[in-house]
């Protein structure tokens, strides 16, 4: 039970009278590959924001490796090992790829406030940045300004920054969203090859991605978890099918 890296207890969030998260309970073990699916407006991104500390829950608690982090700020949680990617690219668009990674790694090593030594003297930071770029096959683009990369490659930088934080828990908010099909294999391969010891929670719309990647799936509908289980269970669950077929009708 308590070997979970990330665990929520009765997590609730209300915006006024609107409940966007209701009694959400789930946990991630080390190395988990867990997907959260659900129709539009189910509260998936709200859940990511609650877990990362962008939003404060109205009730309930969040634990990271057994420690209560419910009131911790976003940046403190990062230092404790939660990293995320964004559904819409949230990058340092005017900087080179390697500078994007540099910022994340310098912050993790605690050197970001150093004022009097050139950034170029931090050899360890550079080695780490290059290592991650190589793993994600981005090293050719090290010196490219992010704005000039294709959208698919930008998604890869989005992932690279999160990896640079050396997280225990990684939250991927629709990693392949907006990527043209010609490029999607790049990002999906990268997600497949993420280090095994990281617990990963993936928010996804695309069922192909979910069933390719996840070992466990939770279905989020109107702010609460409707079903949770292994992929086969979810795929055959009549309630889930009803929700998705119902949605398909509207599309």
């Amino acid at each position: 039970m308590s070997d979970a890296v990330l665990e929520t207890k009765n997590l609730n969030k209300n915006f006024g009278a609107l409940a966007v998260a209701q009694d959400i309970n789930f946990s991630l073990n080390p190395g988990a590959r867990h997907a959260i699916i659900g129709p539009n407006g189910a509260g998936k991104t709200t859940l990511v924001n609650l877990l990362t500390g962008v939003l404060r829950p109205s009730a309930g608690a969040i634990f990271l490796s057994g420690e209560d982090i419910t009131t911790m700020s976003e940046n403190e949680r990062v230092k404790h090992g939660i990293a995320r990617t964004f559904q819409i690219n949230t990058l340092f668009m005017g900087l080179t790829v390697i500078d994007n990674l540099y910022l994340a790694i310098a912050e993790r090593f605690g050197g970001a406030t150093e004022m009097f030594r050139p950034a170029g003297h931090h050899i360890k930071v550079q080695e780490q940045a290059l290592h991650i770029l190589t793993t994600l096959k981005l090293e050719e683009n090290s010196l490219t300004v992010v704005r000039e990369l294709s959208y698919g490659r930008q998604r890869l930088v989005e992932l690279a920054i999160a990896l640079a934080l050396d997280p225990k828990v990684l939250l991927l908010d629709e990693p392949a969203a907006g990527v043209p099909s010609t490029e999607s294999h790049i990002i999906l391969d990268a997600v497949d090859n993420l280090p095994e010891d990281i617990a990963i929670l993936i928010i996804e719309h695309d069922m192909d991605v979910v069933f390719r990647f996840a070992k466990r799936i939770s279905v989020l509908v109107r702010g609460s978890i409707m079903a949770e289980g292994e992929p086969e269970e979810i795929a055959t669950n009549p309630e889930v099918q009803a929700v998705y077929l119902g949605e398909a009708d509207h599309v």
């Binding site: 976003e74 940046n75 990062v78």
Partner: peptide, 11 residues
């Protein structure tokens, strides 16, 4: 460049 992301990398 991006205060939002800075916060998300622990700044």
């Amino acid at each position: 460049e991006n205060p939002r992301r800075m916060s998300a990398i622990g700044t």
